[in-house]
Design a protein around this nucleic acid. Structure first.
Length: 426
RNA sequence: GUGGGUGUAGCUCAGCUGGCAAGAGCACCAGAUUGUGGCUCUGGAGGCCGCGGGUUCAAGUCCCGUCACUCACCCCA
């Protein structure tokens, strides 16, 4: 084989489309219900936006971006996440003067140069939600509720939020100092990765999977004891809201997120069985980001959810999305006159909105019937020598096997009636 | 970037300790039914056994290299 898809990318084939259709429809329905509006920034932006927006020392920026120079020698990058681009869109298009909060969502591809594995690709699709301009914890709840409602309506069971607060610029630095202080005392015992984390991203120390490191992290200072009053209140109120709605969640002190811009609330939703990358969505609050990108101080919160991971999760939980609609009529034809009539007939049917197909080439009648069956149509219209002589068509109901003879003029009206009939049933 | 696993028909996979003119199921095509699908039966088409080298009388099978895929780590949806 000469060409194959790029590492970490995947083809979406017809048999998977029912998942995509189902998920997209559910997203549209829920975002509408929650009062979100769709925006789509371009797939690539100037590289500097992501450097600033995501954070220069994050893994995403340091090693995962698809960056290239265009013919004008501009450094461009395929978006490695949605938020920075949406913030740019928000500022550039004057949405910051719109009534607050501004509630936006997007659906599209994300690119990261990573080693692929189960549930992780170099191109994946994200459903992304952002709410700008309101710091009320009720907005945190609202954003989390979009994710919750989506997974519930997709049919997932047994899900729970992982929840944490990572503090804010007022309280986090002091906490991180204490954390580092603690770890400096255990420097001998921690793994190589953790030694790096200690210098570069101390919060991640808590998340290490190495057993000996976990023992150490178990004794580490907990951020909740170091939150400032504002952060503590915010977190407590959010918990009150979640409790009121009886939404299951687990406080996870180890939940930290890799992007620099998060403040206060961070959350994920996990699903088992899709490999070790089990987070179906991840997000949190980023109250300082807009300011960092040149806007006025504006609170914000959002999350991204991987559609490929939703599909993996649905498969794992044996959730069957609705089947796509099948074509309604198939026209089988034998002989030249019938061929012309078939072409005319499917055109007429399609004009009035009925999904009609015909056989191509000179296939045997039997083969055409097999094809009709395989396509899953409700009716086969048969045009053969006899029919052409009588100016009639034989219409066969493929589920009951009944068939009747109709004048040409009666076929389209009959199909309209039959389709309405089946619509009612389903 | 690091470590493990796997590469045989379109898909899922058998091929044990080297002896294969290379198999099965599904899918595809055709026939049984000369104008009637699904079920069944019969037949057909479809493979440089990832690629390159080596060992051997003999390699899909053993060895080396290489590429690809895959799982896991880092990190993330």
């Amino acid at each position: 084989m000469k060409y194959q898809s790029i590492k970490g990318t995947r083809d979406v084939l017809p048999q998977e489309q029912k998942y995509w259709r189902f998920i997209e429809k559910t997203i549209f329905r829920i975002t509408e219900r929650f009062g979100f509006e769709r925006v789509e920034p371009p797939i690539f932006e100037e590289t500097a936006l992501f450097l600033r927006g995501v954070g220069e020392t994050t893994d995403i920026v340091e090693k995962e971006m698809y960056t290239f120079f265009d013919k004008g020698d501009n450094s461009l990058t395929l978006r490695p996440e949605y938020t920075a681009g949406v913030m740019r869109l928000y500022l550039q298009n004057g949405l910051h003067v719109a009534p607050k909060p501004v509630k936006l969502y997007s659906i599209g591809p994300i690119f990261r140069y990573e080693r692929p594995q189960a549930g992780r690709f170099r191109q994946h699709t994200q459903f992304n939600v952002e709410v700008l301009g309101e710091q009320d914890p009720a907005v945190d709840l609202e954003v989390m509720s979009v994710a919750w409602q989506l997974y519930a309506e997709l049919g997932f069971s047994g899900l729970a939020f992982q929840l944490n607060s990572t503090g804010c610029p007022h309280c986090r630095p002091a906490y991180i100092e204490q954390l580092k202080e603690y770890y400096y005392h255990h420097q001998e015992a921690i793994c190589g990765d953790c030694k790096r984390r200690l210098e570069r991203n101390p919060l991640r120390l808590l998340d290490c999977k190495v057993e000996t490191c976990q023992e150490i992290s178990a004794g580490a200072p907990v951020i909740h004891n170091h939150l400032c009053i504002e952060c503590r209140d915010h977190f407590a109120t959010l918990r009150l809201y979640l409790d009121t709605l009886k939404r299951p969640y687990r406080i996870n002190h180890r939940l930290v997120r890799g992007l620099d811009y998060y403040t206060k609330t961070v959350f994920e939703v996990w699903v088992e069985g899709i490999g070790s990358q089990n987070a179906m969505c991840g997000g949190g609050r980023y109250d300082g980001l807009i300011e960092q990108l040149g806007g006025k101080p504006t609170p914000g919160i959002g999350f991204g959810s991987g559609i490929e991971r939703m599909i993996l999760g649905m498969r794992e939980q044996n959730i069957e999305p609705p089947e796509l609609l099948r074509p309604f009529v198939f026209v089988a034809h034998i002989g030249q006159a019938a061929d012309l009539k078939a072409i005319e007939l499917i055109a007429d049917l399609r004009d009035i909105g009925i999904a009609a197909l015909m056989s191509f080439g000179n296939r045997s009648f039997k083969a055409q019937m097999r094809e009709a069956n395989r396509l899953g149509v409700d009716y086969a219209v048969i045009l053969g020598d006899e029919e052409m002589v009588n100016q009639t068509a034989t219409v066969k109901n493929l589920s009951t096997g009944e068939q009747q003879s109709l004048l040409f003029d009666q076929i389209v009206p009959m199909m309209i009636r039959m389709q309405k009939h089946t619509d009612k049933k389903s």
